[in-house]
């Protein structure tokens, strides 16, 4: 749609600007302030410059948390995106069952994050959980509170359980927009199932898949509540991801300076990735409009 140039439109945007500025810019400035100061309480601040940033960049603890975070995000993307597409291809198209499946699939997405954690915490327990109990009955030594590998598996399965439906729903929406004529043409050409997927369905899903990957990457990169409830970051530090580490540092130990420096770098990474996705996304939009 052609848009008219109208500078007065700023007045319509103003309320959003004010409210988001209050809840985003003001706190962010506080963080910036902390990141360059040291404090001993009583609101007395000492200028320390970039000291905290240097400390954080070289911090072993941060590197470990970052490594775990990247590994976690990579694993869940590698599982959820293909699985989500696969599920979307198998979803019933219309009618009563279509609605039932949609509603059931969306259910995990609407559960409060800490309840998701609670569900899996209970489900995985060897003494009272169905999963833990069943595994134990098969003689598998599974205990997510002691074994780092089991803790990782639990957290990943939980995330797959929680969010695969999101990828599937988005891919499904993309599939719905493919005109019947494409499939008919493919049938006349006697295209194989794989060729249809590769040359018709995948290109048509490109836009929504990009959003799905963006959302899953972002949300997994700042995951806090679910693993915190299930494992509390343990055993040891094995499931301490960036947000968990940050909250530990800021609220637990009250190391405001390092935590603030950490926050800013964390935020910059997210900003960079968002920008890359946004650019690709708007370019895609433009191509489609043409």
């Amino acid at each position: 749609m052609e848009k008219t140039v109208n500078q007065k439109a700023w007045f319509l945007v103003l309320p959003v600007l004010v409210i988001v500025a209050f809840s985003a810019i003001v706190p962010l400035m506080t963080v910036v302030n902390y990141s360059v100061n040291d404090t001993f309480g009583n609101n007395q601040f000492f200028w320390v410059g970039l000291e905290w940033f240097e400390e954080m960049v070289t911090s072993e603890r941060l590197h470990d948390a970052l490594g775990r975070q990247i590994l976690f995000s990579a694993i869940i993307l590698a599982i959820e995106v293909p699985l989500g597409i696969f599920i979307a291809l198998n979803m019933p198209k219309k009618g009563f069952w279509g609605s039932v499946v949609l509603v059931l699939m969306a259910l995990p997405l609407l559960i409060p994050f800490n309840v998701v954690g609670t569900i899996w915490q209970i489900f995985g327990r060897v003494d009272i959980g169905l999963l833990g109990h069943t595994l134990a009955a098969f003689g598998i030594d599974y205990n997510y509170t002691n074994d780092p590998l089991d803790a990782w598996i639990t957290v990943i399965v939980m995330d797959v359980w929680h969010w695969t439906s999101l990828v599937a729903l988005l891919a499904y929406a993309g599939l719905q927009s493919i005109p019947q004529a494409y499939y008919q043409a493919a049938r006349i050409d006697q295209a194989t199932r794989w060729a249809i997927f590769r040359y018709i369905e995948l290109p048509k899903m490109q836009g929504v898949l990009l959003i799905a990957i963006l959302l899953r990457f972002m949300d997994s990169f700042m995951i806090y509540t679910e693993p915190f409830v299930v494992t509390g970051g343990g055993p040891g530090n094995s499931t301490t991801f960036l947000s968990i580490d940050l909250v530990k540092m800021a609220v637990g130990q009250f190391d405001l300076g390092p935590a603030a420096a950490f926050s800013i770098m964390y935020f910059l990474v997210i900003l960079l990735v968002s920008w890359v996705f946004y650019t690709v996304m708007t370019n895609l939009d433009r191509e489609e409009a043409r």
């Binding site: 706190p27 962010l28 963080v31 800021a250 405001l256 926050s263």
Partner: peptide
């Protein structure tokens, strides 16, 4: 990330 904003 909400964790960044919690303390401020």
């Amino acid at each position: 990330p909400p964790a960044v904003f919690a303390l401020p």
